[in-house]
């Protein structure tokens, strides 16, 4: 096991490849991606991407479907390799440690990085409470005691703005919740283990507008405490919730800038073409 297991990792920032513009006090880099390639079989879907995700900020990744944005996200917690025939090359540094280094256990990586998917994925055999606490189930003897877990469950549900809706039915099945509630439950589940980074893969794609708004508000709340990376095909959403936005096209990272700048004064003509709706 490597230093990844030790919680207080100093936020060491290697020099970013693309220096963030107009940042008077540069925030620490939480996740640094260096020359990352991702393959499905012989198909290279992410091509030499280098990118920094800054601490306690929301970064959005946008781009037309098939551009590799979800694949890039899945490389950040080593989920990409769980697909048969998929592999990666390059480095992803979490607080200065390469999560792809030899000897690093992907299970430890995934425990430190929460993930929420496009469709809500509550575990149907578990109650609402057990769903939120699911991340502790795999810890065995290292898991906190019942009362601590109950406190964490409440805290996470409050954080995910779901507590008031479910506090009286924590023992009931999670499948009885609405789609929006289920998705917030999944966010609570990801937050329960206090991850350093939260990855969201089009988290509102299957939700109605009201639920979408609730999730977006929640992301806004999380800013400042958790590093958030959100993949979305919805440019308005990226503009609403993120501090910085990265634009990808056909596996390449085209541009990454503060969100306001990317949507008002993009540097690359391809970015401009995309945000003005000329393709994608």
């Amino acid at each position: 096991m490597t230093s990844l297991i030790m919680p207080p990792a100093p936020p060491v920032a290697p020099p970013p490849a693309d220096a963030p513009e107009s940042a008077s006090v540069a925030p620490a880099v939480r996740v640094a991606v260096r020359q990352l390639d991702a393959y499905y079989g012989a198909n290279r879907t992410v091509r030499g991407v280098s990118l920094d995700f800054l601490d306690a900020q929301v970064t959005a990744i946008i781009g037309p479907s098939g551009c590799g944005k979800s694949t890039l996200l899945r490389c950040l917690n080593r989920m990409h390799e769980t697909i048969i025939g998929a592999r990666t090359e390059g480095e992803v540094m979490l607080d200065g440690d390469d999560i792809y280094a030899r000897g690093v256990n992907p299970i430890e990586v995934r425990r430190r990085i929460g993930m929420v998917f496009q469709r809500p994925t509550p575990f149907p055999t578990m109650s609402i409470r057990d769903n939120v606490a699911a991340g502790f189930q795999s810890l065995g003897r290292r898991a906190p005691d019942r009362r601590t877990i109950d406190e964490i469950v409440e805290k996470s549900l409050v954080q995910a703005a779901l507590w008031n809706e479910v506090k009286d039915r924590l023992r009931e099945s999670a499948t009885g919740l609405s789609g929006g509630q289920q998705q917030r439950l999944c966010i609570a589940r990801a937050l329960a283990t206090s991850p350093r980074v939260l990855l969201l893969d089009e988290p509102t794609a299957s939700l109605d507008p009201i639920s979408t708004q609730k999730v977006e508000e929640l992301l806004y709340e999380l800013r400042g405490s958790v590093t958030v990376v959100i993949v979305t095909h919805n440019m308005q959403q990226a503009a609403r919730v993120s501090d910085r936005t990265a634009f990808m096209l056909m596996g390449d990272l085209v541009e990454v800038s503060p969100t306001r700048k990317l949507f008002t004064a993009p540097e690359d003509s391809r970015t401009e073409a995309y945000i003005t709706g000329r393709f994608g």
Binding site: Q35, E81, R87, T88, E89, Y100, V104, N105, P106
Partner: peptide
């Protein structure tokens, strides 16, 4: 450069 194709499996 880290390169990996299969998950480092525990025992």
């Amino acid at each position: 450069m880290g390169s990996t194709s299969i998950e480092g499996a525990s025992s």
